[in-house]
Design a binder for these strands. Structure first.
Lengths: 224, 224
DNA sequence: GTCTATATGTAGATAGAC
DNA sequence: GTCTATCTACATATAGAC
């Protein structure tokens, strides 16, 4: 992934308002198409058609397919990280920290924006692609791993008897379950019959993960 | 997915021994390449090179890219299903059924073959692709969902107070966590430091999921 | 910055000799 | 059944006019 490690922007003159709007349209279209078809299934032409722009414009703003993909993933990552860290801070100030409140701070902000905004739902599919495919490990490391650390630290304090390895495993399990929730609600419905509300399913997930981490035989450090 | 729903074989004359060997080589190569690069990233030429066969032969035995993919996924699915159902029967006969033993019967057979045989590890990556991408929902339904039902039934009996919806959700969470374990061990290691043994991580997973399923859960009025 | 036209490569698929 | 040669389509990318 050499290309993806290059800086996303080489500093030039400040772009015009119109140019920024075009670039936003390009990234919006790229987000939609990459989310729907993955990196290999998506084509520049497809993205161009979605953006209502000529093919050349996609290359001009995207700087090649791989860099365009990287930019598309990175665009919302900072916002997402901020939402999560803010939620974690709020949880810390709001009272006793528990495994459930930490997991809620991690999951709920992302979940909530996908409820309000369809483009964030697309972004969730994109994140699932990045997390699944080993080719994008560098992008995942850059965009998502840093945010994970404060949460890992909080969980480590709440579960002092667990090995770091076991905790890391359960966190990875939790994140993959979360992405499954964001991307495969239809599948849950197919197996279980008429679906529950999305909010209920988020509660199911948080309970599942926190119980998985603590377990009935271990002492819960606090009460919600 | 019209093509994938077509029967995989239209009955012809029995193929020669040599032809069967060639077809096996084709499917082996397809498995490797599809697992590594996904459906869109893989090319027929790439598969041909891996198989040491000319391009035309891949088409002859594969019947087009989509049918080849379908065949590749289906080939090991029956074996996998049998391993799992046998393990479930053995667990039933072996003593008291618990959530842990049911999950073990589901996870461990697949996990074990990936330990013994690298081609099964490739197959695990392939299964992850199929489970992730909505395009292959039909293939997943055909190859994997039927096996899921006896396990769902066993879990339903063990957790009678849970709604079917909640159970379905936790099963989907568990399966995605399992696939994460099979495909992203490196990632667990990256977050948690020097990794535990694979067997330990399977135990972590089974404990995580069974604890996640038991304990207080969402219940619904009117649901048995 | 934007758009048109085009260069260059490679994809999936097949026809027909062996 | 196996392999060669080839068809057609479309991919990424760029050069250069506006």
């Amino acid at each position: 992934m050499t290309l993806s490690e290059l800086p996303l922007q080489t500093r030039k003159r400040a772009p015009s308002k119109r140019a920024l709007a075009t670039k936003a349209r390009v990234l919006d279209a790229a987000e939609t198409v990459f989310a729907a078809k993955g990196f290999d299934g998506a084509t520049i032409r497809d993205i161009a058609a979605h953006a209502g722009e000529p093919v050349g414009t996609i290359h001009h703003h995207g700087g090649g397919k791989e860099r365009l993909f990287h930019q598309t993933v990175a665009r919302r990552a900072a916002t997402l990280s901020e939402l999560r860290l803010t939620a974690l801070e709020a949880a810390k100030e709001g009272g006793v920290l528990t495994v459930e409140t930490v997991l809620t701070a991690f999951f709920k902000p992302f979940f909530d924006v996908t409820q309000d905004d369809p483009s964030w739902r697309n972004y969730a599919r994109l994140v699932a692609h990045v997390s699944t495919d080993v080719r994008w490990a560098d992008i995942a490391k850059e965009c998502f791993d840093p945010t994970l650390e404060p949460f890992m630290d909080a969980l480590t304090k709440l579960l002092p008897n667990q090995s770091r390895q076991n905790l890391a495993a359960t966190v990875v399990f939790s994140v993959s379950a979360f992405l499954a929730l964001l991307t495969s609600r239809d599948r849950i419905g197919a197996i279980g019959g008429t679906g529950a509300s999305e909010a209920e399913e988020l509660q199911d997930l948080i309970r599942f993960c926190s119980q998985g981490m603590t377990g009935p035989t271990r002492q819960r450090p606090g009460v919600t």
